[in-house]
């Protein structure tokens, strides 16, 4: 291989730069800033556990979507046996009324732009062509 030394050095520098965020936060002893979501006051329990909702709310919402639109089923029975109407706006957003303080916190942090809001409405931004 020609210029093996140069290539290897270049590769190492590249890898270091690529993984810099991990080294950096490791060296500083703490992770980067984490998003803080504002939980609804009054209501303590979501349809499923906090951990499950955090990891899999998107899957649950997709399942709700298909059940309601495609199968005409509207009631969700949670693991604890509680029944909920499957609706983003009419169930989720009733408690999590402030999208900016809840959904957007993580989504913005992760640079996610879910298409939900192109059609579905959060209750606070009605009529503003909320985007």
């Amino acid at each position: 291989m020609y210029d093996a030394g140069k290539i290897m050095t270049g590769l190492v520098v590249f890898l270091v730069i690529l993984t810099l965020p991990f080294w950096y936060s490791g060296a500083m002893g703490k992770g980067g800033a984490r998003p803080e979501v504002k939980l609804p006051e009054g209501e303590k329990k979501c349809v499923e556990s906090k951990e499950y909702m955090r990891d899999s709310h998107m899957d649950l919402l997709n399942q709700w979507r298909d059940a309601v639109v495609r199968e005409g089923k509207h009631t969700y029975v949670s693991e604890g046996g509680a029944r909920h109407e499957m609706s983003l706006t009419n169930s989720c957003m009733k408690c999590h009324a402030d999208r900016a303080q809840f959904c957007d916190r993580c989504h913005v942090y992760l640079s996610l732009n879910p298409f939900c809001w192109d059609c579905h409405l959060d209750r606070k931004q009605t009529g503003q062509g909320a985007k």
Binding site: S49, G72, H74, V77, E79
Partner: peptide, 16 residues
Amino acid sequence: GRAVAGAVVADPLPGG
């Protein structure tokens, strides 16, 4: 793939 919580039972609304 993330498995869904367990009890995914979807009924029509009562009174439909």
